[in-house]
């Protein structure tokens, strides 16, 4: 089985400041990996490297990602001058693109809102549109950088359920950047921790008894994260 993501010896630095210092990471197809780390540890830098967005950073290393990679940002990043459906299918060609876009919107619970403007939606709804836009492209890899960070707690809970359902249905490999330990435990098959420019922990979670493992995993993660803070 070939990996969906393969990263070897990745280094990234901004002027004067090294951020990533030899990151190795493999993500299997369909695997859901959560990337934890303290603020400023370089999570976004790693994700942007995978997304091909790190024009301003320097560095070396190998990166292999699938052709079909979608990105979800912390802000929904909808184009305000386009109606929802046009936002979802932006850049897609083909006759049935709009039908697929419509289906994707229905899947995230926004059927019938195709012709709304982005500003007519709540933050959570906008983020759902962003999910639809990512998934309508049938990605083999979904990169998400704290996609729920700007949402209120209740909305976040709903979004967790939605993301879990969608990732099971579409089965892309997922790399979810988060600073929320519970979010990581709830959603991921595997949790990696970024610290001092490297991945310092790699914890697998069996989805069969997620609840039972949660306290132990949380303990371990808290340990790793606060050790790094010293």
């Amino acid at each position: 089985m070939s990996a969906a993501v393969r990263v070897r010896g990745l280094t990234r630095r901004y002027t004067l400041k090294g951020v990533l210092n030899g990151v190795d990471l493999d993500v299997a197809p369909g695997e859901f990996v959560a990337l934890l780390g303290r603020s400023g540890s370089g999570k976004s830098t790693l994700l942007r490297a995978l997304a091909g967005l790190d024009h301003e950073a320097e560095g070396s290393g190998e990166i292999e990602v699938p052709e079909r990679t979608s990105v979800v940002f912390q802000d929904a990043r909808l184009l305000p001058w386009m109606r929802l459906l046009d936002n979802v299918v932006l850049g897609l060609s083909g006759r049935d693109a709009r039908a697929q876009g419509q289906r994707a919107l229905a899947e995230v619970g926004l059927a019938g809102r195709e012709l709304d403007w982005p500003h007519e939606l709540s933050g959570g709804e906008q983020q759902r549109v962003a999910l639809a836009r990512a998934l309508v492209r049938a990605p083999e890899l979904l990169l998400a950088d704290e996609p729920f960070g700007a949402l209120d707690a209740l909305t976040r809970v709903k979004m967790h359920a939605l993301l879990r359902r969608l990732s099971e249905a579409h089965d892309p490999a997922v790399l979810l950047v988060t600073h929320d330990i519970d979010e990581a435990i709830l959603l991921a098959d595997r949790i990696v921790v970024l610290d001092a420019g490297r991945l310092s922990a790699d914890i697998a979670i069996r989805s069969s008894d997620r609840k039972e493992q949660a306290p132990i995993v949380r303990e371990r993660l808290l340990d790793t994260l606060s050790l790094g803070a010293r």
Binding site: A51, G52, L53, T69, S70, V71, F73, D75, R77, L79, M82, L90, G91, R133, R137
Partner: peptide, 21 residues
């Protein structure tokens, strides 16, 4: 710039970028 990034991740062509962004 965030819209430009979006256009990059959606792999818009130059023309699509011009027209839609």
């Amino acid at each position: 710039l965030r819209h430009v990034e979006l256009a990059e991740t959606l792999r818009l062509s130059r023309w699509q970028f011009l027209r839609h962004v």
